[in-house]
Nucleic acid binder design. Structure first.
Lengths: 150, 150
DNA sequence: TATTGTTATACTCTATAACTATA
DNA sequence: TATAGTTATAGAGTATAACAATA
């Protein structure tokens, strides 16, 4: 029954790994189905919030930060440019690079959305988790980011 | 700067929601790229571990548990049957249902994999997280499952 | 030569729609 | 009529390969 008879540490890590993989898969589907993020995908929202949080960036740096290929990030950025939420300007110091920034249109849009409290996940967190549980989740998020940079 | 000037609770929930969405997206890509799960996808591994953990089940019940449509689960189950890891038997009490179970071939395969410690995520958890941190993650997983059943 | 970025193409995963078979 | 399941098809998201432009 026990796959790790002489190593309880390995047994705990294995159980946690399985639980984590299951959880991420189910949550990803749940988030997408409940999205209510306008016409934006999760990846696109991540890019926007990163640009908003960390300032202008290039396709390559965004791809690295989000753990995807530059070609894939290009597609996401193109969609955001088409939506008018991101604009690119050539880097004066390096003609190969394009500096991407959020547009005023995005700033207005996100402000209205936040004022309207339209985010399903935010409401779910507020109504089904105590402040202490939310803090616990925030700590876990920080811990899990460690896996991102391995 | 602050989108929730008169509601610090809302501000915390909004920040957590954003961080969670980003994290889930990045982790999903990371898990897939590092998979080392043989030819199996994350969804397929989830189904196998559920069948192993909870015993035989039907396509419909698995779909509900994993948060996807029965048609999508059918595809996953078909792949697992083709791989020889799952087999279906007609339910004697209800001719519409098929009872799915893991095969002895899967039991052998998973035993060998676990003995060889081939799981990237498990090793990462063991080598980069203290036992206390792993326990904290395990608690967070339980908390986040709450979002699954909303 | 190396790096930034794009275009073209294919694959994986899941959804919707339409259907069969059993209850 | 309702439920379990399949097949067909389409869409979203990301990957690989090949390329152009700049460093």
């Amino acid at each position: 029954m026990n796959e790790h008879p002489d190593d309880p540490d390995a047994a705990r890590a294995a159980a946690l790994a399985g639980a984590l993989r299951d959880l991420i898969g189910v949550l990803k589907r749940r988030f997408r189905e409940q999205s209510q993020l306008g016409d934006l995908t999760m990846s696109q929202v991540s890019v926007l919030s990163r640009l908003e949080r960390e300032g202008p960036a290039t396709v390559t740096s965004l791809a690295k930060a989000e753990g995807m290929r530059p070609q894939s990030m290009s597609a996401n950025v193109a969609a955001l440019e088409a939506a008018g939420f991101v604009s690119g300007a050539p880097d004066p110091k390096d003609g190969r690079q394009t500096i991407l920034s959020v547009t005023p249109a995005f700033t207005e849009w996100i402000k209205a959305r936040r004022a309207a409290r339209q985010d399903w996940l935010m409401q779910a967190l507020q109504s089904h988790f105590t402040p202490a549980e939310q803090d616990e989740l925030a700590r876990a998020v920080l811990l899990l980011k460690r896996l991102t940079d391995l």
